[in-house]
Simulated assay, not measured.
Amino acid sequence: MNHTTPPTAPKPVESPHLQSTRLFGRAREVTIEHAGEIYRLRLTSNNKLILIK
């Protein structure tokens, strides 16, 4: 009799949790480099986030 263990599902990876205040500090905009491109993450006057390529 051959006893095999069923395959286990991969553990889900938790997304990092960042506070926007730590990301922005006193600035209203930060730049993010992704795949050789520069993006700007901007905090609007209505306290919303906008990502611009």
Rank of each mutant, 00 (worst) to 15 (best):
Ile38Arg: 04
Ile50Gln: 07
Gln19Glu: 12
Asn47Val: 05
Ala9Asp: 13
Leu41Glu: 01
Pro7Cys: 06
His34Thr: 01
Lys11Met: 09
Val13Met: 10
Glu37Lys: 00
Ile38Ser: 05
Ala9Val: 12
Leu18Met: 05
Met1Asp: 13
Ala27Pro: 00
Gly36Val: 01
Glu14Gly: 06
Pro6Gln: 06
Gln19Tyr: 09
Glu37Ser: 00
Arg40His: 15
Gln19Pro: 04
Arg40Ala: 14
Ala27Val: 07
Lys53Ser: 05
Pro16Met: 07
Pro10His: 10
Ala27Thr: 11
Thr21Arg: 10
Met1Lys: 07
Gly36Pro: 03
Ile38Ala: 08
Ile50Ala: 07
Ile50Tyr: 02
Val30His: 00
Thr8Ser: 15
Ser15Thr: 14
Arg40Asp: 07
Leu23Phe: 02
Gly25Ala: 14
Arg42Leu: 08
Leu49Arg: 00
Thr21His: 10
Pro16Ala: 07
Leu18Val: 06
Ala9Lys: 09
Thr31Ser: 08
Thr44Pro: 01
Glu29Ala: 13
His3Leu: 15
Asn47Lys: 12
His17Glu: 10
Pro16His: 06
Pro7Arg: 08
Gly36Lys: 03
Pro6Val: 04
Val30Ala: 05
Lys48Pro: 01
Pro10Met: 09
Glu14Gln: 11
Thr5Ala: 15
Thr31Gln: 05
Thr21Trp: 10
Gly25Ser: 12
Arg28Phe: 07
Arg40Asn: 08
Thr31Glu: 04
Phe24Ala: 08
Ser15Trp: 09
Lys11Val: 14
Pro10Tyr: 12
Tyr39Met: 00
Ala9Arg: 08
Glu33Ser: 12
Ala27Met: 07
Val13Ile: 15
Ile38Gly: 02
Pro7Thr: 08
Glu33Ile: 07
Glu14Val: 06
Asn46Glu: 13
His34Trp: 03
Leu51Gly: 00
Ile50Arg: 04
Glu33Leu: 07
Ile50Leu: 10
Leu41Met: 06
Thr44His: 06
Ala35Asn: 02
Lys53Gln: 05
Leu23Gln: 02
Ala27Trp: 05
Pro16Trp: 10
Asn46Ala: 12
His34Arg: 04
Ile52Cys: 01
Glu37Asp: 03
Val13Asn: 01
Leu51Ser: 03
Ser20Lys: 15
Val13Glu: 10
Thr8Gln: 15
His34Pro: 00
Glu29Ile: 12
Pro10Gly: 02
Leu49Phe: 06
Ile50Thr: 05
Leu41Tyr: 02
Ala27Asn: 11
Ala9Leu: 11
Tyr39Pro: 01
